[in-house]
């Protein structure tokens, strides 16, 4: 089961995880194009929580008992049994926000533009989630059970 764990003691609140999440989910995967040219801009699926001096990033925990999946009325959210990821299919999503209501982490992001939701997909297709690989201070750890855990 893939999951991103946080080390709040060393999160520096730079928000680069959010920036690179946007890049990872952009069309071009290029930071300048993603931010300056792509319309609509991609959305970050990670949120940096702040209560200075404390900061830490939070995103979907890919729960083993995902409330969002149970609450989803359209079947857009499901848990992929092979990878353990909680996956969101935007094609099926109708934007009822039941998942927003039940996610205990606030990990479901509302896509205002499309009136749907979106969420962390652990950067499927990349070797490591972008937020993890781009965190400048090792505050995010990708715990991939298949690869031997934390």
């Amino acid at each position: 089961m893939g999951k991103i764990l946080i080390k709040p003691e060393v999160c520096i609140g730079c928000h680069l995880c959010e920036i690179w999440c946007v890049v990872a989910h952009s069309r071009t995967k290029d930071i300048l194009k993603a931010f300056l040219l792509e319309k609509p801009a991609a959305i970050s699926r990670v949120i940096v929580e702040e209560r200075l001096p404390v900061t830490f990033a939070l995103q979907c925990r890919h729960c083993s008992e995902p409330d969002c999946v149970f609450a989803c009325i359209s079947g857009a959210l499901y848990k992929d049994s092979a990878s353990g990821r909680v996956i969101h299919d935007p094609e099926k999503c109708v934007g009822c926000y039941s998942c927003v209501l039940v996610c205990p982490y606030g990990g479901i992001i509302i896509d205002q533009e499309n009136k749907k939701v979106t969420k962390c997909d652990l950067c499927e297709g990349f070797e490591k989630p972008y937020c993890v690989s781009h965190c400048p201070n090792g505050a995010l750890v990708y715990a991939d059970q298949e690869k031997g855990g934390v």
Binding site: E9, V10, I12, N137, G138
Partner: peptide
């Protein structure tokens, strides 16, 4: 750089593991 400070917002920039 979190090296020479006692401000918790700054000092955490230095991750001892790194």
């Amino acid at each position: 750089w979190g090296v020479c400070t006692q401000d918790p917002y700054l000092s955490k920039r230095l991750n001892p593991e790194i």
